[in-house]
Amino acid sequence: MKEKPDNNQQLTIQVEELSKHFSHFVAVDKITFDVQKGEIFGFLGANGAGKTTAIRMLCGLSAPTSGKARIAGFDVYRQAEQIKKNIGYMSQKFSLYEDLTVTENIHFFGGIYGLTDKQLKSKTRQLIGDLGLEREAKKLVSSLPLGWKQKLSFSVAILHDPQIVFLDEPTGGVDPVTRRQFWNLIYEAAERGITVFVTTHYMDEAEYCKRISIMVDGKIKALDTPSNLKQQFNVPDMDAVFYQIARGAQRGDKNPAA
């Protein structure tokens, strides 16, 4: 692979035979896939299949054992810092500081990504306007309903216009209406050219992705568009596809070694 950032702007994520071993345990086993610019890519898998480990490698948080991966054109082994500048990350577990206000959170996260005061000001105004949070701007994040928090958290994650945004179960526990509003935000981001890499346990959300991969026991067992997968397994919905693929999982619930 080349040293310089990749000129091929069409592929923002390129992963080839990427593996991660923890002593004798193979958490991620030679996964290979590409994600295109502006694509919404669903990264599914059973509990303990190795999703979290894989995402950590892609975000430059953990060094792979073997294989290649370029994220936003940067190499995961040597350019972790550049990767971090070019991605956004949001997880259900941690998103925003509950004891800071909406504006303070936006300023803080914008600040660590090096936005200037002027940019921050205009971005904050725009973001608060888009989400309709004018009345809540000075309120503590802890006082917002969960759904609003998640929407705000997503907007903050893409505040610095990253090439890719990683979303780890962003809609867990969110009501169906807010969940859909959240997906509208995802679509808008994708339209703007941001690549969206998302994990979820809601199978209807898998349908909203352009392509999805399903990980089982550290390997990618399926990778295609939702409709192709349904056709391939001859089942009516993604729920059934997932069940067919993940049912045979050795790790996770059948074997607690995972």
Partner: peptide, 8 residues
Amino acid sequence: TGVDPVSR
């Protein structure tokens, strides 16, 4: 909550 569809 947070459990994959098969386990659910």
